[in-house]
Design a binder for these strands. Sequence first.
DNA 1: TTCTTGAGTGAACACGCGTTCTCTCGTTTA
DNA 2: TAAACGAGAGAACGCGTGTTCACTCAAGAA
Lengths: 247, 247
Amino acid sequence: MFTQECHSAGKRASLFVCVSQHAFTESFSEHSAYAGCMSTPAANARKLQKERTREALMNAALELSLDRGFAQVSLRQVSQAVGVVPSAFYRHFESMDDLGLALVERCFGTLRTMIRDAQRDPHVFENIIDAAATILVASVKASRADFAFVVRERVAGPEPVRAAIKHELDLFESELAMTLVRLPNIENWNSDDVHMLARLFVRNMQANAELAANMPEDRPDLEAQIHDLARREMMLIVLGFKDWRSN
Amino acid sequence: MFTQECHSAGKRASLFVCVSQHAFTESFSEHSAYAGCMSTPAANARKLQKERTREALMNAALELSLDRGFAQVSLRQVSQAVGVVPSAFYRHFESMDDLGLALVERCFGTLRTMIRDAQRDPHVFENIIDAAATILVASVKASRADFAFVVRERVAGPEPVRAAIKHELDLFESELAMTLVRLPNIENWNSDDVHMLARLFVRNMQANAELAANMPEDRPDLEAQIHDLARREMMLIVLGFKDWRSN
DNA sequence: TTCTTGAGTGAACACGCGTTCTCTCGTTTA
DNA sequence: TAAACGAGAGAACGCGTGTTCACTCAAGAA
């Protein structure tokens, strides 16, 4: 009994070193953006390591839900993918729902950053529709797992996750409405119509993001096709602006 | 051992009568449309009863997936809801995926029937947009579980189910394109543009169907709101037709 | 240097799952 | 009337699940 305990302890330790390295690599290679710029400086190595494992769990869950959908992914699968024992999961999240909510927050964080960066670029406003289509395709390409997660779990996720995504999308829609209301032909539409318009745009961006996120990788032709499709859709909708009479 | 066998056999028989009645009721009360008009007359009582149980299994799966999503519903849950033992499930479907495919087929069957009925009504063409919005809301109200199933499992379902729904929606889109191309301002658009337009419409119908299907029941105000929203969206898109120049 | 902390371990648990098998017994057929 | 059929019963199986618990053993604090 005693020898067995010694043996298992030794095995445990060496295994831990192994899985820690695994966690590192995964975290940095796949989502270096997050790992590098956390809000806390995380002075001591202990907290830093914990943060890394947490990120690794989130990345593993994101990747696993790509083919199965988040609700199909189990706590044990996520833990195993990271190289950690199931009970260790609870050091980071209360439940899988909790992890899901963290993922929603992170995804919309990157989304918002992208949009803010785009708005800062003055070049964008020269041809707003073309720019929007370009940004859409490029953004999805850069974080396809995030976009795929949002469009999928918006309808398929556990109820708390669905609610969180709905809330974020509503916010996004309201922000867009505030931008739209300053466009030439729209400035004196009533607020109901502006919201309807914002909805129309958000909805079609969602649909095109879904298309782009589920597109096979490294297919510049399909990419261009989706870009063009999105552009033409927005053009058609915009054409109706000047003749719009609320009723 | 012998007595136990006798006892359990007796219990079994009485239980079976009970669950059969349960299956009947559920089948007829919730989906009388299907139970009443099957293609086969099913002359003998044996086949009729089998068909009833099959319908009951499908209805139970449809209802259970309303709050959890189809992929979360287990073979045992469906069987229990119908009042049948899990192994009996296999008399009707090879697997849950198989049942899912049957559901897709049934849902699009009713959908197509509705559309065909609508096209037969000459009154519809007087104001096509208003009619479309009305039909959309009414159809969803009449078969909300079916519509909810389609919009949810299109992205959340098992891969075979997703593929089947995608195929049906593509068919629907092509059919709509053939109708659209005969509209006044569109007749000389190129086919790429017409398909783009059909996509835009299908997509927004999906989104509005999703809205209507997830709406709380017996809320005529919300119903009217969705109707109005769908109408205005289509109006706006239609407004752009006459100015459209492909590029 | 010694004490405390806490991320991760590993065993155990109760449970629900899909699948299989043999059996029952009313219905259909010959 | 007797034999065949087949929908459903019920028990058993091996497996993956979430959750709990006492534990180890480096890192950080005193």
